[in-house]
């Protein structure tokens, strides 16, 4: 009887794990569906857009008063420096597909790749 209960528990565990893995897989496919090379990177602080830059132009941009340094080169964007203790945003690497995000939690900053071309005037620093 005890073994039976143990098996029932195990079965519930396995069903939960399978359901969660399935959910993660479906969400991954849904979020990455139709992803393509992006055109612009949009920088947001506290959820509000502060600047956008074309991915086709290279440059180095200090963000958020210099808390993070954004680099755009060869159609890819990444954060090269950050003043936060964990530097997770720097380690997130390079992004170029639409929807991809780099997040800096301590500075409440996100860098998102979006489709289309930049409509504003881009300036190149450095």
């Amino acid at each position: 009887m005890k073994a039976l209960f143990a098996n029932k528990k195990l079965r519930a565990d396995l069903i939960l794990i399978a359901a969660l893995l399935l959910l993660a897989g479906i969400l991954f496919l849904a979020l990455n569906h139709g992803r393509q090379e992006g055109g612009v990177v949009v920088v947001r602080v506290n959820g509000a857009e502060v600047e956008r830059h074309s991915l086709s132009l290279s440059g180095t941009f200090p963000l958020n008063g210099g808390s993070n340094i954004l680099v755009i080169q060869n159609g890819q964007a990444w954060l090269s420096e950050a003043n936060c203790p964990d530097h997770i945003c720097v380690r997130q690497g390079k992004i170029h597909y639409t929807g991809q995000v780099i997040t800096c939690l301590p500075n409440r900053l996100t860098v998102t790749v979006e489709g289309g071309e930049s409509d504003g005037v881009d300036f190149v620093v450095g």
């Binding site: 794990i17 969660l20 893995l21 959910l23 993660a24 897989g25 969400l27 991954f28 979020l31 947001r44 506290n46 959820g47 929807g99 991809q100 995000v101 997040t103 939690l105 409440r108 900053l109 996100t110 998102t112």
Partner: peptide, 21 residues
């Protein structure tokens, strides 16, 4: 993070469900 930084952070949800599991 959604409340503080906007909806684009849901991009992380699949990998966070996987890692949490």
């Amino acid at each position: 993070a959604w409340v503080l930084m906007g909806s684009n952070v849901v991009f992380y949800l699949p990998v966070l469900i996987l890692s949490g599991t």
